[in-house]
Write a protein that binds this DNA or RNA. Sequence first.
DNA 1: ATAATCAAGTGAACCGTTTCACTTCGCTGA
DNA 2: TCAGCGAAGTGAAACGGTTCACTTGATTAT
Lengths: 321, 321
Amino acid sequence: MTTIRDVAKRAGVSVTTASYALNGIGSIGEATRKRVLEAAEELNYHPNAFARHLKHRKTQTIGVFISRFGGSFYEEILEGIHSVILETDYELLVCPESRSTRRILLHRQVDGAIVFDSKISNEAVLKLASRRFPIVVLDRFLQGEFILPLLLDNPQGVREAFGHLYHQGLRKMAFVAGAMDSFDNAERMATFLAEAEQHALHVPVYQGNFTEISGYEIAQTIIQSDELPEAVFCANDQMALGFLRAMKEHGLHAPADIAVVGFDDIPQTRYMQPSVSTISASRFEWGTTAVRQLIDFLENESPFQPRRIPTRLQARQSSTL
Amino acid sequence: MTTIRDVAKRAGVSVTTASYALNGIGSIGEATRKRVLEAAEELNYHPNAFARHLKHRKTQTIGVFISRFGGSFYEEILEGIHSVILETDYELLVCPESRSTRRILLHRQVDGAIVFDSKISNEAVLKLASRRFPIVVLDRFLQGEFILPLLLDNPQGVREAFGHLYHQGLRKMAFVAGAMDSFDNAERMATFLAEAEQHALHVPVYQGNFTEISGYEIAQTIIQSDELPEAVFCANDQMALGFLRAMKEHGLHAPADIAVVGFDDIPQTRYMQPSVSTISASRFEWGTTAVRQLIDFLENESPFQPRRIPTRLQARQSSTL
DNA sequence: ATAATCAAGTGAACCGTTTCACTTCGCTGA
DNA sequence: TCAGCGAAGTGAAACGGTTCACTTGATTAT
């Protein structure tokens, strides 16, 4: 590995001069600067990032903490984040859940974090966040001067979906809930029930856990009961898929027998027969917004702008009479 | 930030002793060790990763270089890599194409690399690879003592697909090729044509570029020609999807009018109507194999084991008469 | 002629660890 | 009694950069 000392020696200058010349700062004569740059080029010199970070106590890196790579779930968000990073001189460190998450966060290997991993506790986030280490959270509602929660606009999409069902004359509705500890689930449920209440409807809630199988099992239960609901809203698409699978197995059709709406707009929903109505959000924009705000905070200390990511109903076959 | 000096001071020992105690090496009395660990705990001390890396000239990090996050393409490979990393004391740095790729590679911020990004040139890989910096490439055939190409077993899957078509009595076949500079495309095509030749078949080749639209356009051309082939093999699924879309628009059905087979087993193939025959590989296993070999090389200098990732035909509706 | 100014360049400390080479000291065995 | 030893602990250099405070020597103003 060639170091700046090698470069300095070859250019016949001091290390200080070499450093200034390479970084284009300090007052260095044109001829000298050129000599240093040439030497660096000839020796194929590249500064050691660790030495630099150690000195600067900054890493020019944004950390993104997700629970796993799979599931198509983070893909678009990451693409969005990446697209912004490309325009900046920051780097991107994507870290799936593991011991290293703790390590990386604690060892300050990144300048700021975007958190989308419920395994990271609220306490941890609260403890870590500081002026020197702002955190954007995408998966929870958490307030703090140096914490920005950036969440989906669940109410908007859910209200739209409710209206879509209601205006088609459907009155007997059911709600299939996801994991209890999920903020999104809570908000989707609260909104749906509030809308129903406004229209004097009673909506039974079935407790699932966001998995396909939980949707499937809940559908079994519902189908075996006395009378079927006219419409079911599932707190996410996986459960809607499970629900539809059970319906199919019992010879029931959506939307004729039960209209079904999900949430997230995962790719399969488009390809299923029938195609599945769902609520979409621009996950790409979610990612770009998150990283823009984070970098803006790091560079200019601009206070966080609370914001919701818009959602939109995608009315497809499974709920359109 | 608390440093090891703070810990040493609080424990009333030298920095050296603190370091040894924290790392569990050197000869340090039991009582002293305990005192140091307590001090570290109380001060919430975490060693600075950069200082450590600087000293060690090792980062305990594997870099994965992909072209982008989207497209479901890397997902499973990354999951596989991640699952292995979890069992080791290495960390994972996933880097989508950008200036930073160069930076990270050149600045030796990782101990070894897994490359799956055709934008990184062969020359770059050849120049970088060394005993101290082994590289696994997943997207090209590249030989070198410190380079391990880990590729799909294209011939196996393609031969299976050819047999599947041939045994159903199909004789008039066509091949829809992907990007010219792709190793996978070349190998798939070579295998298919060789198989055809063995059975005295002539197979016309249509040049696409792996995109859905190129498959669509080629289908248009073929459909407007005098006589249709009985079967078409597309070098990847995207093109197969485009091909099927064009067929549908012209009122043609797969497999009755033309049997279609793709390659990659992307999720949609399962959900389409008709479901699309394709060739699958365990991408998860691809990832685990890659990182296992890399770490094994780093730790034990065990020479690379050339290997192919097995592929398997998934015969679905689009090609099953 | 001389002081002031300025551009160009340099020495050395520092960032936070690790680790080599060394010291200290109590104990054992002859 | 004392050489020798091993356990416990320490000082300081090193990793590879950056940057503060400083020197040098030429130019300018008076």
